[in-house]
Amino acid sequence: MRRALAAIVASLLAASLCADDDAPDTASSAAASGPQVGDCVIFREGGAGRLLTAPTYWLKGSIAALSRQRRQLDRCPHIGKPASAFTPADQARLAAAMPCVEQTSASALATPPREVEVMRVQVAVADWETPWSHQHGTTGWLFRGRFLEQPLAKGALIDMDATWLERCEAGR
C-alpha cells in the first residue's frame, strides 16, 4: 500500500514538473523584465492588522517615463518622533532620502556611504483613494487627495521610486 501511494505521489510530482517545464510562464518573464512604459501600476498604503484590518488607500496609474539614477546610500534622516506622528513634510523628507539605511548598529555608523542605482518612474495618475481625516486613516504618503506634498489630479505626473509600486491590470 505504501509503495503504491509513493508511486502515485512520485508520478504526480513528475507530471507537475514536466507541465511547468513545457509551459512558459509569461507573468514571471514579464516581471523579470522590469517595469515598462505604459504598465499599469498601483501604490498601496495601509491594510495593517490581522483581525481588524485598517483600510487600504491607493494611487493607480500608468508608467509615463523611466530613468535610472545613481544615489548615495546614506543614513535615513532622524525625525525624532514615531511614524504615526509624522507630518506630510516629515514624510516627504524621508521619501526624498530613500533608499537609505536605518541606524541599527555601531558598524552601520562606521561604514562610508556608497553609491547605488535606483529606478525612478513617472506615473500618470488615473485614480486614487486617500483618507480625508485622521479618523479615516493615519497621515501617510497618501492623505487628503495628495501624494506626499503633490496634489493628485487625473493625468498628473508623479515622480517616485519604482520599488514602491506593484503591477496591476489596466482594466481593474
Rank of each mutant, 00 (worst) to 15 (best):
P88S: 02
A15F: 11
R146W: 02
G46F: 00
R172Q: 12
V123W: 02
E45W: 02
T26E: 15
G61S: 08
L17M: 13
G80L: 11
C100M: 06
V125L: 06
G61Q: 06
E149M: 10
R68C: 03
E149Y: 04
R50M: 14
D20P: 09
P113R: 09
V101N: 09
A170F: 05
D20F: 14
C18Y: 14
L152C: 02
G145W: 00
V123F: 07
P113G: 05
A32F: 07
G140N: 00
A96G: 03
S133P: 03
V41Y: 04
W141L: 03
P82H: 09
P151C: 07
A85L: 03
D161T: 04
P77C: 03
L12C: 13
E149C: 07
G171W: 12
G137K: 03
C40V: 08
G46S: 01
A4W: 12
P99S: 03
M98G: 06
T56D: 02
P131V: 01
A108H: 13
R167P: 11
D20T: 15
A89Y: 07
F86D: 00
P24L: 04
P151A: 03
D21I: 15
M119N: 03
S67F: 05
R68I: 09
L5Q: 14
E102G: 09
L109A: 10
E169Q: 14
S84T: 02
W58E: 01
I8V: 14
R70F: 10
D20C: 15
P77E: 02
R44E: 11
V9S: 10
P112E: 15
M98Y: 01
G38T: 11
P131D: 01
K154P: 05
D90K: 01
E166G: 08
K154Y: 03
Q69G: 00
P112K: 14
L73S: 02
W132E: 13
T130W: 04
G34N: 01
T87R: 05
R50V: 15
P55T: 12
L52C: 11
S29P: 10
L12Q: 07
G49V: 07
P99Y: 03
T26V: 15
A6Q: 12
C76F: 10
I8Y: 07
D39R: 10
